[in-house]
Amino acid sequence: MKSNKIFMEYTKNDLINFLLLMIISLLIIPITVKSGYWYSSILIPWLCLALASIGQQIVMGYAGQLALGAAGFMAAGAFACYNLILRVPDIPFFVALALSGLIAAAFGILFGLPSLRVRGIYLMVATLASQFFIVWMIDKFGWFKNYDSSGIITAQDIVIMGKSFTSPLEMYLVIVFVVTVLTLLAINMARGSTGRNWMAVRDMDIAAESMGISLLRTKLQAFAISAFYCGVAGALFAFTYLKSLEPVAFDIKLSFKILFMVILGGLGTISGAFIGAAFILLFPVLLNSIGNNVFHGAIDATIISSIEQVVFGVLIIIFMIYEPLGMAKLWDNIRLKFKKR
């Protein structure tokens, strides 16, 4: 990779990792995985939610602002994308996607304003306002839903350069492209001066301010970029996974899920977002298949989902006590142990 002022210098290891991941996601997976189930039920939602987790990671893991409203921004992004494609003739999909991210970012700045005055649980309550307000607004003003009374709107097909991407594999490739670009950007920001400012604010905001870092700029920037990621993720989530748009899909439960992905995956790491999203998404699948195959459906589905909740909760407590940096750190530790030998 050519390095210039925009992109940071990458080490050889980074390059190898990047190429390896690209080969796996663009060659090995499309060749070996044939069943649509894997794409539409596992890979696509995983990548979408991982993208949203990166957004949550930026505001919470890097900038240290306890926010709980990722799903609200996802809803904003999803409905912005729907309306842009519906109302602007011939808008290219990626332009619509980027614009919906920007619209979500505007909401992010608006609801990030309280972060200038408060922190911790106070901020969490303030960001909850965004969650409830955005979903309510979309639900109550018919314009956003194009006056559709059924409550469920089918998402438009993704059309790029005249070709429509509708099969699971095609949609997967679109998402891989978007996620790759945005993840690289996020890694850049996190390693660069932007990320260092965020972390300085996270670790001690008063000290950071006295070093000349503008709290206003840094915090709002984190909120805006976080909401941008969530917005894009929400649009992709609605267009490729849900294939429909309904405000209910973006309720507070999804916000909690994304929060858990970040906490369990590991605060302050981009890889943590991917690991956490994979875990939160796959664990229920695993639990269900155990329920079906080992106990042959003898356990009620509601009991299984309750167990799932208990396990997530217990894991969060355990991680908070023993490894506050989450699974990403755990993975690092294991790798280091093997390297030593």
Partner: peptide
């Protein structure tokens, strides 16, 4: 601590429903 009590909340909800 706040994050831990969020986890605790999920444990209680899950246990109650189970």
């Amino acid at each position: 601590l706040l994050m831990a009590t969020i986890g605790l909340g999920f444990v209680l909800e899950g246990l109650a429903q189970a």
